[in-house]
Amino acid sequence: MAFYVDIRRCIGCRSCEVACERVHGGRGHVQVHFVGDSASVPLFCHHCEEASCATACSFGALFKEGERTAFDVEKCTGCGLCSLACPFGVVWTDKIAHKCDLCDGRPEPTCVATCPADALSTDFDLLARRARSRAARAAAQGGRR
């Protein structure tokens, strides 16, 4: 399972950030970024197919497990190589790595369950449907989006 962001819906409230921190002992794995004064976007691990973080880790603490890039805290030495390898800057280290575990053991990713604007979803089709209806609406209004 992965999850997806509909950036048009993100209102920059940082609820996902706080929710992730709450369930991970104060160290969250999402960071909401603001671009200019009109856009916000939550940044988190993409669970890359070819995960650079896992390639860089010498101890197998990061590894692919199905779609997920999983993390085994017992194996981590906090060397920080994963943080330097991730192209998106979304794995942090301070004596230990902190990375999205897709809320392993919970029924749903906490950030997805929390987002009040419905910007996050585990359902790619839902987002695709929304994008199509937006496009249809725009076409009906004379091509303006």
Binding site: V5, I7, R8, Q31, H33, F34, V35, G36, S38, A39, S40, V41, L43, S52, S83, L84, A85, C86, P87, F88, G89, V90, W92
Partner: peptide, 24 residues
């Protein structure tokens, strides 16, 4: 992997700009 030479904070900034660019 040239991104290795950009600090993680700048990688995040670049990603935020990339994903929101079209919308903005």
């Amino acid at each position: 992997p040239e991104w290795v030479w950009d600090c993680p904070a700048c990688r995040r900034r670049a990603e935020a700009e990339r994903t929101t660019g079209e919308m903005v």
